[in-house]
Design a protein around this nucleic acid. Sequence first.
DNA 1: TAGTGGTCTAGACCACGGA
DNA 2: CCGTGGTCTAGACCACTAG
Lengths: 259, 259
Amino acid sequence: MSDSLAMTIGAETKQSSPAGGASFSPLYQQIKQLLLRALDQGEWKPGESIPSEFELAARFQVSQGTVRKAVDELASENILIRRQGKGTFVSTHHEPHVRFRFLRLAATAGRTPPTKSQVLNCQRVRANAHAAQQLDLRVGESLVFIRRLLTFENVPTVIDDIYLPSFLFKGLTSSLLEAHQAVPLYGLFETEFGVSMVRAEEQIRAVAASSEVAELLAIKVESPLLRVDRTSYTYVDRPVELRVGHYLTDQYYYRNSLI
Amino acid sequence: MSDSLAMTIGAETKQSSPAGGASFSPLYQQIKQLLLRALDQGEWKPGESIPSEFELAARFQVSQGTVRKAVDELASENILIRRQGKGTFVSTHHEPHVRFRFLRLAATAGRTPPTKSQVLNCQRVRANAHAAQQLDLRVGESLVFIRRLLTFENVPTVIDDIYLPSFLFKGLTSSLLEAHQAVPLYGLFETEFGVSMVRAEEQIRAVAASSEVAELLAIKVESPLLRVDRTSYTYVDRPVELRVGHYLTDQYYYRNSLI
DNA sequence: TAGTGGTCTAGACCACGGA
DNA sequence: CCGTGGTCTAGACCACTAG
């Protein structure tokens, strides 16, 4: 197959704003979408480098400057990482910098504490209406359910309840999770299942600890906790994870920047 | 005065990485800093347009492409807004879009509810150690303290305690705030005091309502609340506001995107 | 029609990293 | 040394807005 876009654009540029539709998009946006599709299909794996700007320009039959603009956007979204003199690399959750973006509890001055992770549960469940809607599945489809406890400096701090479409995570079991206890969960999803989380939306509330969660965190029932509802998305904006976290914020806080 | 940078660069480019210092910065970054300084000095007010890219290029003696890259960055930080065919404008908190970025409580699907704001208190206080450190002042310096209540759809939802350096907000009184009840607070700061908030850092925790806050929000003592500690910054990254918010999140939630 | 930002190209040169 | 990304320039053309 040829990835050339020259024809497409040549034709598209000439029909300025067709009467019915609003379908035009600039060349660099089309390149960006092609790169995202290639990433989604695993053409370049997290941690690897992608071809040089000139190679991509030749492949897509556009100028290097146009590729550059597409890559610029992907780099600003933290999907690619440029390294001068070395190349452009696919982001990976195995790097602390990336993990930091998805684990927002900090103690002071942005320092994220060393973490211990324990899997408390891992089983198949059926999607309820909410999960099905969020994950773009049908009610009753099979999900992997994981409950885990994060401990910071010997203080049980986070309970995460995680829901994943089973068909994307075949073979995900307690023992697999335990075998990879050291790597971040999203790192494991990347390398074991080819699923890369690049974006998430969160809803944050203050709630009173249920007896169940209180027991797991070794706190009093009704203690105030942060409840964080997260939906995570991959390269092509497919939702692939639902997560409900309960955070104890006595010693840590959720950090956020408004820009 | 001449804003030309040609000399600076010509000289700077030649001395590649001087032994002692790490002082080099690209032309477009220097242009960006000049633009930020001009904004800080009020050369162009929020809502106004800045000169065209070619005018700025002539003023700074660089190419239009270099100005474009500087403006691109400022636009990506939501400090400037480009409007094709019209020009580039200075962001203002009077636009709902900007306000939305700093008021993160939403009900469903990102809709922010209509808000009523009531000022409960406005007086001068002295900076304690924490406030002085955060606002880059000396302990004991005068601050304006504002306490206000936000009501969403007749539900008291937010108590904000706000601290501002008095010397930047001369003449800020209860009656002034009441006279401008309709405009967002940051909009008032912009137009009345020339202080534009462009960025903020927040720390979020779950806490139990104190009796004082519980009474103001008409809820039970010890109810779980979001506590949001915010420090806000202006164009040149000066901290100018400290804010402690207590949010009732029974019907609303704090929305956030991880990217 | 004129002026603005938006896209695309081509080419020169610099800075960095590694062989 | 070469290949990578990073910067800067110049110029052509398109799309949108307003008079």
